[in-house]
Amino acid sequence: MEEALGAIEQLGVVQALKTSFFAYPVVNALHILAIGALVTTVILMDLKLLGLFDEMPEPHFIRLLRRIALGAFVVASATGLALFSVRASEYAAMPLFWAKMGLIGLAALNFIAFITIRNGPRRVFALVSITLWPLALLAGRFLGFVL
């Protein structure tokens, strides 16, 4: 584990990102942009399931927002991995980092359960989702201030 994390930190592209003046803030900004899009669309979908915006047909509403959310999740994961790689061993040693990963993992499982279980408790999935995603965001924001 230690060696693998050290090896990540030594990668050429990671070394470049480590001391870059432009690339790191740009990757950081993209991470924030993606998280903003992800959490916003997730919350809107959750509120829809909880009964808001019922003047809008659900299939269209969900189809559009889910596309944005999934795309944002991919961008957030890629940029997150890049930010992690710069100080991989330090982040991996932080309980807060794993708390954030755990929250994202639970939120992802909740999404998978929601789309797989037919006639499941939709409002429960929505409540779990609207709780976990903002908590993951909060954990991530604290992470940026403790390393």
Binding site: L17, K18, T19, S20, N28, V86, L147
Partner: peptide
């Protein structure tokens, strides 16, 4: 013990 010069 350790030195790191990089982002953030």
């Amino acid at each position: 013990k350790a030195v790191y010069v990089g982002n953030p």
